[in-house]
């Protein structure tokens, strides 16, 4: 076993883990932060996207020990303490950007990473950035609209024509 410490959503955490423990397993099993989902476990789906030192990564394809001393942000840290959704989360709700919700934590974390690098992306840039986030419900249109809206841009009333 290896000792491990990192910061998760601004709070210092420690643990003792096997080398093979994935970051997503550490978050879910050791810290109880089950908002980060495992859709595929093969790097395809992006439901497990979190930020490590400000960069979006697939937490199913990173060992917990690789995040030693890192600053990790998960979906649990996105809303305010009182539960008020952040701009991106609220836009997903307003624009029906989720149905079953399984992919949503990864979608929101990828969207947050995108908007930090590119505060006003167009629809094509959003689609390109979400290449590694799969959604099997929405058909993506409303996710794109939600992210456009979250970045303060006009959104057409119809999802698709």
């Amino acid at each position: 076993m290896n000792k491990l410490s990192m910061t998760v959503n601004g709070k210092p955490v420690t643990g003792e883990v096997e080398g093979r423990k994935l970051l997503v397993e550490f978050l879910r099993e050791d810290l109880g932060l089950t908002g980060t989902h495992v859709g595929c476990d093969t790097s395809q789906c992006g439901a497990c996207v979190v930020h490590v030192n400000g960069k979006a990564v697939k937490s199913c394809t990173m060992f917990a020990l690789e995040a030693e001393n890192a600053d990790v942000a998960t979906i649990e840290g996105q809303a305010a303490e009182d539960g008020t959704l952040n701009t991106i989360q609220q836009a997903f709700q307003d624009h029906h950007g989720l149905q079953c919700g399984y992919c949503t934590p990864g979608m929101v974390m990828s969207a947050a990473a995108l908007l930090r690098d590119n505060p006003r992306p167009d629809a094509d840039e959003i689609r390109e950035y979400l290449a590694g986030n799969l959604c099997r419900c929405t058909g993506y249109h409303n996710i794109i609209r939600a992210i456009l809206a979250a970045s303060g841009q006009e959104v057409a009333p119809l999802a698709a024509e």
Binding site: A131, G132, N133
Partner: peptide
């Protein structure tokens, strides 16, 4: 290469 999250790692 891959997707943005893969390119970050």
């Amino acid at each position: 290469i891959g997707d943005p999250a893969v390119r970050n790692r």
